[in-house]
Computed example of a mutant assay.
Amino acid sequence: MATTAPDQPPRKLKILMLHGYTQSGPLFHLKTKALEKNLHKAFSASPSPGHLPSHPGGCELHYPTAPIRLSATDIPGYDVDGASSADSGEIDSFGWWRRKGDAEPYTYAGIELGLAIVAEVLQKDGPFDGVIGFSQGGALAGMLASLLEPTRRQAFEAAQSAGGIRYLDSFTQDSGFIEEAVHPPLSFAVSYSGFAASTNPLYAAFYEPKIETPMLHFLGSVDTVVEEKRSLRLVEACKNGQGVEGGSSRVVYHPGGHFLPSSQKAYVAALVGFIREVMGKADSGNAEVKEEGVEDMDVPF
């Protein structure tokens, strides 16, 4: 039986939670309280009799806020998804980037700043086992998993000759001998209503070669905010996505729209089962609450 050294705190399952466009860390926390409760129960420091805890320290979720404060003009129908009234001055809505352009290929203004904030959280509060993101945060979860993979920096360097962005300085640190990523590769990533970045060659290196990190995708069958084909592009960008290699076992459809199913048993069970599966492999090597709908938004992300 594994034991914990007296001078070390018990192991926790640490998850980074990335909110969607127009939200904030506190708002996303509020909207995912049921999910947080279920994760604490599933990865409890005090499991049911006869079962040893896989993470004796329990489960710990972190909810950072994106750095780009949005104005009313950034948010079609701007009072949705928690945004406050324009009459109050600044609105409590944030994004990881702003989408620019009228059609593909879009550019993402501020994406370097958004990722720099994530890198700062990784260094300050990590190491993390995995990441869960919703909508724009789901897209960011895929990018983050990609950036931390061992050979991804070389992929960015190779893509620069074709117009790709350079590997982000915020994800690089000098270890004294070589430059390395600011955080170890993640064990898992989860996207709810997420999507792949623009088809702009600027962002190709996030997905070429395919993302190796195990990733689970939740899609709403009647989501009218993020088109299914955009979400499936992220699925196909993962090595074990929807193709021949991995089947469709890492794609879960729920019969709803653009929200995160926090408490429905089948979808919580799928999430918990996925985390247990990937963390088991990592260890061996070493009341219904819904998001407020935004179905009528032409969301600019």
Score class of each variant (00 low, 15 high):
residue 151 T to N: 13
residue 141 A to K: 10
residue 125 D to M: 08
residue 101 G to A: 13
residue 74 D to I: 05
residue 100 K to E: 09
residue 108 Y to K: 02
residue 169 D to F: 04
residue 82 G to D: 08
residue 175 S to H: 05
residue 69 R to C: 14
residue 113 L to Y: 00
residue 179 E to Q: 12
residue 98 R to T: 06
residue 163 G to S: 15
residue 60 E to T: 10
residue 63 Y to K: 02
residue 176 G to L: 07
residue 94 F to K: 01
residue 61 L to C: 12
residue 159 A to D: 15
residue 128 F to Q: 12
residue 183 H to F: 03
residue 87 D to W: 03
residue 107 T to F: 02
residue 159 A to M: 14
residue 96 W to A: 14
residue 76 P to C: 09
residue 56 P to S: 14
residue 149 E to R: 02
residue 115 L to W: 01
residue 144 L to K: 12
residue 88 S to N: 07
residue 148 L to Q: 01
residue 101 G to N: 04
residue 115 L to A: 12
residue 100 K to G: 01
residue 130 G to A: 11
residue 106 Y to C: 10
residue 135 S to L: 11
residue 65 T to H: 02
residue 163 G to R: 11
residue 168 L to Q: 15
residue 181 A to K: 07
residue 183 H to C: 14
residue 58 G to T: 09
residue 128 F to T: 08
residue 112 E to Y: 01
residue 157 E to V: 11
residue 166 R to I: 05
residue 94 F to L: 04
residue 90 E to N: 10
residue 46 S to M: 04
residue 59 C to R: 05
residue 169 D to I: 08
residue 153 R to Q: 14
residue 150 P to E: 03
residue 81 D to I: 14
residue 163 G to D: 09
residue 102 D to H: 03
residue 90 E to A: 14
residue 108 Y to R: 07
residue 152 R to Y: 04
residue 48 S to H: 05
residue 162 A to L: 06
residue 111 I to M: 14
residue 108 Y to Q: 08
residue 117 I to V: 13
residue 145 A to W: 00
residue 157 E to K: 10
residue 96 W to F: 09
residue 144 L to D: 07
residue 94 F to R: 08
residue 159 A to S: 15
residue 105 P to F: 03
residue 108 Y to G: 02
residue 146 S to I: 09
residue 177 F to I: 14
residue 153 R to A: 06
residue 146 S to T: 11
residue 99 R to M: 12
residue 139 A to H: 04
residue 107 T to W: 01
residue 173 Q to F: 08
residue 140 L to P: 02
residue 161 S to F: 02
residue 131 V to H: 05
residue 173 Q to L: 15
residue 126 G to N: 06
residue 167 Y to S: 03
residue 181 A to Y: 00
residue 80 V to K: 10
residue 93 S to N: 07
residue 137 G to S: 11
residue 139 A to W: 01
residue 129 D to Y: 02
residue 181 A to T: 15
residue 117 I to R: 04
residue 109 A to G: 02
residue 147 L to Q: 03
residue 92 D to P: 09
residue 161 S to C: 15
residue 54 S to E: 15
residue 158 A to V: 07
residue 79 D to Y: 06
residue 102 D to A: 07
residue 176 G to R: 10
residue 168 L to H: 12
residue 83 A to W: 00
residue 179 E to R: 11
residue 92 D to H: 07
residue 67 P to F: 06
residue 141 A to Q: 13
residue 104 E to W: 00
residue 174 D to Q: 10
residue 80 V to F: 11
residue 104 E to P: 03
residue 108 Y to M: 15
residue 78 Y to W: 10
residue 110 G to R: 04
residue 144 L to C: 04
residue 58 G to D: 06
residue 98 R to K: 08
residue 132 I to P: 02
residue 171 F to R: 01
residue 125 D to P: 00
residue 106 Y to T: 07
residue 109 A to F: 04
residue 76 P to H: 05
residue 101 G to Y: 03
residue 143 M to T: 09
residue 127 P to G: 11
residue 171 F to G: 00
residue 68 I to P: 00
residue 56 P to E: 08
residue 72 A to F: 06
residue 74 D to G: 03
residue 129 D to F: 03
residue 90 E to D: 05
residue 82 G to R: 05
residue 155 A to H: 07
residue 144 L to G: 07
residue 173 Q to P: 02
residue 166 R to G: 14
residue 98 R to Q: 12
residue 46 S to G: 10
residue 135 S to G: 11
residue 133 G to E: 03
residue 128 F to A: 10
